[in-house]
């Protein structure tokens, strides 16, 4: 059996979720190839070849692939699948966009956001905002799977797979890329960060969110997250949203400030190693999952925390 992993990247660098997806793929088969679909992405393909356990890397390049258009990626992957029994993609917004399209073209189910490989046709995935775990067995000839990267360890470096060019498909004739507004940040990326500091509706404004959350995140070297309420209100950009329908994170340390802990939020962070909650309401549901809860107004608690961290040499 051979497995194809579709790399997560931004044309310039390979994302760690690819390494984690390779680990899931290696649980299916030892014959794992990586597809890098992009434009000007040669360095990404070379980085993919260095992942331990990878057999070879396929590189497909065109403008439409560089823009991540689902139709273009599908047109590359579907013909390649005659040589593979499964295709695994990290469950990022990109992967979630094209992977089901590939599945339908192959007339197979998609198995969404797996967190465990039981065997080559049996997988575990969360449903109902993570309130249940479903074990499913697939009867399809080819498996199309998205992988919740936080549930798998990253495959190491040390591989030396060769890079081969492959056809770029016929693009996306009915879709025109207009533009992309990306938030640039020097902070670690939310999805893979070791520490995440998140703010909620309690912040009350974008200025307050930045005044309170940014310095604490800087001090901890943390990525920044937010609740849906904070994002909806415009306190934080939309890709900061942690939760059932936002990003799923599982850092070593998750600090929730002024977040109540709705099921949809918990779905995105309850697998963090240590959870800290700062909330003035002692009955907030976030305290049910917090390892360390501080019942306090964040306006006093956060400055005190900054001082205590400084005193501890942070």
């Amino acid at each position: 059996m051979a497995v194809l992993v579709i790399a997560d990247h931004d044309n310039a660098s390979l994302k760690d979720s690819t390494h984690k997806t390779v680990t899931a793929a290696l649980a299916l088969s030892s014959d794992v190839d990586i597809l890098v679909a992009g434009s000007g992405a040669k360095a990404v393909a070379e980085a993919a070849g260095k992942i331990a356990g990878v057999r070879k890397v396929l590189l497909a390049e065109s403008d439409a692939l560089g823009q991540g258009l689902a139709e273009a990626v599908t047109a590359v992957v579907v013909p390649l699948m005659s040589g593979y029994d499964a295709v695994l993609t990290p469950a990022t917004s990109q992967g979630k966009n094209f992977s089901p399209r590939i599945a339908a073209k192959l007339d197979v189910a998609q198995i969404s956001e797996i967190v465990e490989v039981v065997d080559a046709s049996t997988f575990v995935r969360p449903i109902y905002a993570g309130n249940a775990l479903e074990t499913v067995q697939s009867s399809d000839a080819k498996k199309v799977i998205t992988v919740r990267a936080t549930a798998f360890k990253a495959a190491g470096e040390g591989g030396s797979a060769s890079v081969e060019s492959t056809g770029a498909g016929d693009g996306a004739p009915k879709t025109k890329f207009v533009d992309q507004q990306l938030v640039k940040s020097a902070r670690p990326e939310l999805a893979g960060a070791k520490i995440v500091v998140s703010g909620g509706r309690a912040m009350g404004s974008a200025e307050e969110f930045q005044r309170v959350i940014d310095p604490l995140a800087d001090k901890l070297g943390a990525a920044i997250g937010a609740s849906r309420a904070a994002v909806d209100a415009g306190y934080a950009p939309n890709d900061y949203q942690v939760g059932q329908t936002g990003k799923v994170v599982a850092p070593e340390l998750y600090v929730a400030i002024g977040i109540s802990g709705a099921i949809q939020h918990l779905a995105g962070m309850k697998d963090s190693k240590i959870i800290v909650a700062i909330n003035k309401d002692a009955d907030a549901p976030i305290f049910q999952v917090a390892d360390f809860g501080l019942v306090s107004d964040y306006k006093t608690a956060v400055p005190e925390l900054m001082d205590a961290l400084a005193a501890a040499g942070k």
Partner: peptide, 18 residues
């Protein structure tokens, strides 16, 4: 195309402290 083998509860987090 998928047979549901079982549906289980996710592991509970251990009790934290204030």
């Amino acid at each position: 195309r998928l047979k549901v083998v079982k549906v289980t509860e996710p592991p509970k987090r251990g009790g934290g402290i204030k």
